[in-house]
């Protein structure tokens, strides 16, 4: 998909540039943009280093684990198919906590661990379970408390108030998360999305561990 977008942009640029007689400007833009890209990335180094350093402290101080404990009751309700004491739930909660803190590098391994655990509970091994889709809905719309990358770009480009977008970003991503998870929960009931062999319910979740 991205390949098509990329080559499409270049083809259109050269064709339109030739038609409008701006090929020299197109050439200049190609060189200027490549230099600008490197300057932008190098400008990110300082702020990224600052943030990742602080996040490493958070990780070692066990802040991620504390957040995970707070989120546990919500997680049980979102994933009714997962037994309350199953390691999948712990991995999910740790992954979500890490991504809220902007710990992308810590979040991905935890998320992959969560997927492996969910796969053990999945009756149809090549088809996504309801819990997997709900989990990925949480991940594709993830809330980030501090959008460090975009703040770094704003600093680099000389913004007078680089962090003013923090509250709008939290609000917008909260909306995205609510809609994505809500959609996952509603769509899983549609006949189009039903699994061919209905999953057998886990008896231990039926009456145990509900808040």
């Amino acid at each position: 998909m991205l390949n098509a977008v990329w080559i499409g942009l270049i083809v259109i640029a050269v064709v339109v540039g030739a038609a409008t007689g701006r090929l020299d400007a197109v050439t200049k833009a190609a060189f200027d943009s490549s230099r600008g890209a490197v300057e932008l990335a190098i400008g990110l180094v300082g702020v990224m280093a600052l943030w990742l350093g602080v996040m490493k402290i958070a990780e070692e101080a066990g802040i991620v684990r504390v957040l995970a404990r707070l989120l546990r009751p919500v997680a049980r309700r979102l994933f009714p198919d997962v037994p309350a004491d199953h390691p999948a739930l712990a991995a999910i909660v740790l992954n979500v906590s890490a991504s809220w803190l902007g710990l992308g590098n810590a979040a991905t391994p935890l998320g992959l661990k969560a997927m492996e655990e969910l796969q053990k509970l999945n009756p149809a091994k090549d088809t996504a379970s309801n819990a997997m889709v709900t989990f990925l809905a949480l991940n594709t719309s993830s809330i980030t408390l501090v959008p460090a990358t975009i703040i770094a770009v704003r600093v680099t480009l000389g913004s007078a108030n680089p962090t003013e977008i923090v509250a709008p970003t939290i609000l917008a991503s909260a909306c995205a998360t609510v809609v994505a998870v809500g959609a996952a929960k509603l769509l899983e009931r549609l006949p189009v999305f039903r699994v061919a062999a209905p999953p057998t319910p886990h008896p231990e979740t039926a009456d145990e561990g509900r808040p």
Partner: peptide, 20 residues
């Protein structure tokens, strides 16, 4: 984890993006 049938995952993700 080798899942090929993604069911409603793309729809839920894109609805979330639109809402965001």
């Amino acid at each position: 984890v080798g899942i090929r049938g993604t069911r409603h995952a793309v729809a839920a993700g894109l609805l979330g993006d639109l809402a965001g």
